[in-house]
């Protein structure tokens, strides 16, 4: 006799929880950038490891979907691998590491280099959804500030950066103004990725499990990174190219390669790097054979 087997509902969450998340998502899409509170449930991973993203993916995913999960651009890190395996098991969905094959991309702190399409949904894992949190700790106050569209605090913070350092010293989680109304935290993506959110053809969903908030950016929506006329927003940029695939204009990770302080710069997006390398090698082989 085999022991009792636990059978989870498809998508792990129970249907009632999914409905709560789904209703919050619909209101989130209707009010771009507004943080909708929801009853965040326990999922089999600790708070802060992507529980918000997992609940969104679980509520959205279906048998026709192909899921890609990235953790800072990489498909092969522990968090990405285990979340992908989790959904293969509980949702029966296909998974992929290729950005262009995915219909749902759950991401921690990056937007893929490959341009997104209309058939894709990006699910961001968000640790702190409130962009004003470190400027105003009281939730009651930040809600009121959003209601009154009173974002002076944020501009003062950016101004103080300029006064102190000569430039805006925020390189990740750089605040954005969505559809000209709500200031929103884009989750800790590098400011390099901020321009990709503007008028993106893909639907972007944000889930903060510990903080119990859901928000969204519909496709083709204005997403403006905050700045001043004389000190406009400037995304991070890199002088060098990837040392594996030689891509330029991509976000690079600095990787230690020895104990002498030697480093190399490589693509943070592993899928992009692999595919660029394969295409290049293929072209190279064709050239040699020609």
């Amino acid at each position: 006799m085999s022991g009792p087997r636990i059978v989870y509902n498809e998508g792990y969450l129970d249907e009632q929880t999914k409905r709560v998340v789904r209703r919050a998502l619909l209101k989130g899409v209707a009010i771009p950038g507004f943080q909708v509170p929801f009853a965040s449930r326990e999922v089999p991973m600790p708070r802060g490891w992507g529980t918000g993203g997992v609940q969104l993916t679980a509520s959205v995913i279906g048998p026709a979907d192909t899921l890609k999960v990235i953790d800072q651009g990489a498909d092969d890190t522990t968090n990405a691998v285990s979340i992908r395996a989790f959904f293969e098991k509980v949702a029966g969905a296909d998974s992929t590491t290729r950005t262009d094959h995915a219909t749902i991309i759950q991401t921690r702190h990056r937007i893929p280099e490959t341009p997104l399409t209309e058939n894709q949904i990006v699910v961001y894992q968000v640790p702190i959804p409130e962009p004003l949190r470190f400027l105003e700790p009281r939730e009651t106050e930040t809600r009121r500030l959003h209601a009154l569209e009173e974002y002076g605090l944020m501009y003062v913070k950016l101004y103080e950066d300029i006064a102190k350092y000569g430039h805006i010293a925020k390189t990740y989680d750089y605040p954005v103004l969505v559809n000209g109304r709500y200031v929103m935290a884009p989750s800790p993506i590098p400011s390099f990725d901020n321009p990709k959110m503007h008028q993106s053809p893909a639907l972007q969903l944000f889930g903060a499990g510990r903080e119990k908030r859901i928000y969204a950016i519909p496709p083709y929506t204005d997403v403006e990174s905050l700045g001043f006329e004389d000190f406009p927003f400037e995304p991070q940029s890199f002088d060098q190219s990837c040392e594996i695939c030689e891509s330029t204009e991509v976000y690079l990770d600095e990787v230690l390669i020895d104990d002498q302080g030697g480093v190399m710069f490589v693509c943070s997006d592993t899928d992009h790097c692999e595919r660029t390398l394969t295409t290049r090698d293929h072209d190279h082989i064709t050239e040699v054979n020609a």
């Binding site: 498809e10 249907e15 789904r22 209707a30 509520s59 959205v60 279906g62 209309e118 969204a216």
Partner: peptide
């Protein structure tokens, strides 16, 4: 099929409000 039908209908509504 309560789980799959609900998912399919929700996705259609989500896409409808998003586009």
């Amino acid at each position: 099929n309560p789980v799959r039908d609900a998912q399919q209908v929700f996705r259609a509504v989500l896409e409808a409000l998003a586009r």
